[in-house]
Amino acid sequence: MVLLSTNPTVQIDWQKRFIICRGIAKGLKYLHERNPPIIHRNIKANNILLDASCNPKISDFGLAKLYEEENPYIAIGAGGDLLYMSPEYATRRAMTVKVDVYSFGILLLEIVSGRNNADYRANQETVFLLDTAGNLNARGRLGDLVDPSLRTYDWDQAKIVLNLAMMCTDQSPSLRPPMSEVVAVLEGEKTLEDLSKEIALST
């Protein structure tokens, strides 16, 4: 994905980043609302294509599966990026649409921060973006994740995207919002508070 490119000549401003976040959410909503739902299973930066206007297209459906509600435990081969895998998928191979929601949350963090999910450092432990986000969130400093290279950005939108990312990457699948609700928040039809209340009532 061009957003995480090492090419310094490539710059994507905040407005385009928000368009990308919203577009990916809409794409996943479309897949998840089909009958039966389609689970992409490999949502990551490299599988998001951008057109000239930075409208995103989800690509690489090589690992996609139709969701079987009566049998969410699927034996899979080695594939995909483990760093984007939800806990229940990585450990128990439990596959529901919430697997994509988790990966989408990781992707949101990357888009806002301009950083890769995992920072490999020679002779040091790998630093994971989600861990960093969790630590910052616990201290009320989630906004520190915003890419410092952005000259200007809409803090209200950034706050929404970052908080959605934390909701989408919750350890419990039942506490992750469906993509339809994520889209509603990104389009201003619902607030984060509305979404939090609906998740609380549904569990």
Rank of each mutant, 00 (worst) to 15 (best):
V112E: 03
K159T: 14
I106G: 01
A165I: 14
A52P: 00
V127E: 03
E193A: 14
Q124T: 12
S202F: 08
L162A: 00
A45C: 09
L129D: 03
S149C: 05
S149T: 15
A200N: 11
K190N: 08
P87E: 03
G62Q: 05
A52V: 11
D119P: 02
K65H: 11
D51H: 02
L28D: 00
L83V: 10
L82K: 15
M85T: 07
R34I: 04
S86F: 09
H40V: 05
G80T: 04
S196P: 06
A78N: 12
S113Q: 10
V112S: 09
E68A: 13
I43Q: 01
V185M: 03
A64C: 03
Q11F: 11
T91N: 12
E125I: 15
R41T: 13
D170P: 03
N116T: 15
N116F: 14
L175A: 14
L136D: 00
T126M: 13
K159C: 14
L31C: 04
N135I: 15
E125N: 14
S86N: 05
A133F: 08
N123F: 06
N163L: 05
R115I: 01
D147Y: 01
R121I: 15
E193D: 07
S172W: 03
I48Q: 13
L201T: 04
I19R: 15
G143D: 10
I12R: 02
R41F: 12
K98M: 06
M166K: 11
P56H: 04
P56R: 00
K26M: 08
P178Y: 02
I199F: 04
G140N: 15
I24Q: 00
L107Y: 02
N35E: 14
A138I: 09
D170C: 07
A138S: 15
I39S: 00
V99H: 10
G77C: 12
V112R: 08
R22K: 15
V2K: 12
I20V: 15
V99M: 08
I58L: 07
A90V: 09
T191D: 11
P72A: 14
N135S: 10
L107A: 01
N46A: 11
G77M: 09
L162S: 02
L192S: 02
S86Y: 07
L136A: 03
W155V: 10
M167I: 12
N123E: 13
S174K: 11
I199C: 01
V101Y: 01
P36F: 08
I111A: 04
T152I: 07
A90E: 07
Y153N: 01
Y30C: 10
N7T: 01
Q124S: 14
I38G: 15
L195Q: 05
V127G: 01
V101Q: 02
R92I: 00
V146K: 11
G80Q: 13
A122D: 06
V112Y: 10
D81H: 06
G79F: 02
K57H: 02
G80D: 10
Q11G: 00
F128C: 14
D194K: 12
N116D: 13
P173I: 00
D147W: 06
M179D: 04
F18K: 05
A90M: 02
G143E: 05
P178R: 03
P177N: 08
L145G: 06
L162H: 01
M179F: 05
K65T: 09
V127Q: 05
N42H: 10
K159W: 09
Q171W: 13
Y102L: 10
S103G: 08
